[in-house]
């Protein structure tokens, strides 16, 4: 696998200053973009095409925190990514059932009863959004832990595992939010 940290010439860390990263991306692009190699023969041009592709993909992957986590997981612990863990935390499972029931009752309800149910779902959605925020905070903590561990040359696997669980939970809640939006608030149906 291509090491995007090396491609962009930055230390392997989960916390990244994205403004600084953008500057690096721009400078590297100005040095390596194929447009500047048109007059230098086919070989150099194709090399630039390859280098520039890696720079573009590296920037895209590392600028986005979530893509960054997945990339580090793939880099450090591919065995973790391979494990398909679709289990849902018990507390979440309760919530899912509750939401499904509420959505069903919304569809079956008389027009005048609908407003109350919509309000209820709006509240649930707010709770879910708060959950997502909490998870993101937890993930941020994991970022620091991971970076410290890397610096001290300590094992990172436990942090990565926790991070993966958090990510999974976050994705699950996001899907729930989208479902509520699609069923009740006229949002776009998400593609699987």
């Amino acid at each position: 696998m291509i090491n995007y940290f090396q491609v962009l010439g930055i230390p392997k860390k989960l916390s990244i200053d994205t403004t600084g990263l953008e500057k690096i991306y721009h400078d590297l692009s100005k040095k390596n973009h194929p447009d500047f190699f048109l007059n230098q023969g086919e070989d150099k041009y194709l090399d630039a095409l390859e280098t520039s592709s890696q720079i573009n993909q590296g920037y895209k992957t590392l600028k986005d925190p979530l893509a960054r986590i997945n990339y580090i997981l793939a880099l450090d612990a591919p065995q973790l990514l391979a494990e398909k863990d679709n289990s849902v935390a018990p507390d979440l499972l309760m919530k899912v059932m509750e939401i499904q029931e509420t959505i069903e009752s919304y569809h079956d309800a008389e027009e005048k009863e609908k407003e109350a149910i919509v309000n209820e779902l709006a509240e649930i959605k707010e709770d879910l959004n708060e959950d997502v925020n909490n998870i993101l905070n937890d993930i941020n903590e994991m970022f620091k832990k991971y970076d410290e561990a890397v610096e001290k040359n300590e094992d990172t696997i436990e942090t990565l595992m926790k991070m993966k669980t958090l990510l999974h939970k976050r994705n699950y809640i996001n899907t729930l939010i989208h479902t509520i939006d699609a069923e009740v608030f006229g949002g776009e149906k998400i593609k699987h």
Partner: peptide
């Protein structure tokens, strides 16, 4: 099966 999604910066591979 999407290999390169739309709105990906080019060149890309």
């Amino acid at each position: 099966s999407v290999l390169i999604p739309r709105n990906t910066t080019i060149p890309t591979q």
